[in-house]
Simulated assay, not measured.
Amino acid sequence: MSEATVPHLGSLPSRLVRLYGGLALYGLGVGLQVRSGLGNDPWDAFHQGLAGRLGVSIGTVIIGVGALVMLLWIPLRQRPGLGTVSNVILLGLFADAALFVLPASGHWALSWLYLGLAIVSIALATVLYIGAGMGPGPRDGLMTGLARLGVSLRLGRFLIEIAVLAVGWLLGGTVGIGTLVFALAIGPLTQLFARRFPLT
């Protein structure tokens, strides 16, 4: 979502709080879901699998993949904003920080608690981030860019996420019941938070 399409964005300081608060919360959500061990969302299954193969942190891969995805924006004529660049640089750092401080889950109850908190965190983070109106994340921008070429946004998102999920699973990323729960819950929960935290 571009700044031009977001009504009543509010003052610049409040938008920056939404942007960076949203990115920090999203990074926390990534860490929680990875630590749950129940299954990651498609992109993070890919990030985790690639990180394991390369011997680097998942945050490093998130940053690298985000930068590479932005290169795909060039033929799609997508324009990055401050939020886009901040996403590329900071999201991986926040995810690594969360993974550093969160203890591993040693019990099924803690795993499910982590998963539930992860979904809530990512849903709220998405609303905060979009509400800032400072440009989409690199992965979202890829899908909206394809939509401008005539590809259905829903179909484009489905195909991309199925592809990265499959590759992530083949690389050793964690795919499981948590992946399914995330897929079913993230949309409705994001809509709920969008009503509770309007863009004004």
Rank of each mutant, 00 (worst) to 15 (best):
H8E: 14
L9P: 12
L9I: 06
L12D: 11
P13Y: 06
P13R: 05
S14D: 11
R15I: 06
R15N: 08
L16Y: 10
L16C: 09
V17E: 01
R18F: 14
R18A: 14
R18L: 15
L19N: 10
Y20N: 10
Y20E: 06
Y20I: 06
Y20R: 03
L23D: 01
Y26E: 00
G27Y: 02
L28S: 04
G29T: 03
V30R: 02
L32C: 05
Q33C: 14
R35W: 08
L38H: 04
G39N: 08
N40C: 11
P42V: 12
W43Y: 12
Q48R: 12
G49W: 04
L50D: 13
A51F: 13
A51V: 12
G52E: 15
R53L: 14
R53A: 15
R53G: 11
V56E: 00
G59V: 05
T60F: 07
V65A: 07
G66N: 11
A67Q: 10
V69F: 06
L72E: 07
I74N: 05
P75M: 06
P75Q: 08
L76P: 02
Q78A: 07
Q78G: 05
Q78L: 12
Q78N: 12
Q78V: 13
R79A: 13
R79K: 15
R79G: 02
G81Y: 10
V85H: 01
V85Y: 09
S86C: 03
S86H: 09
L90D: 03
L91V: 13
G92K: 00
F94Y: 12
A95C: 08
A98E: 01
V101E: 04
V101K: 04
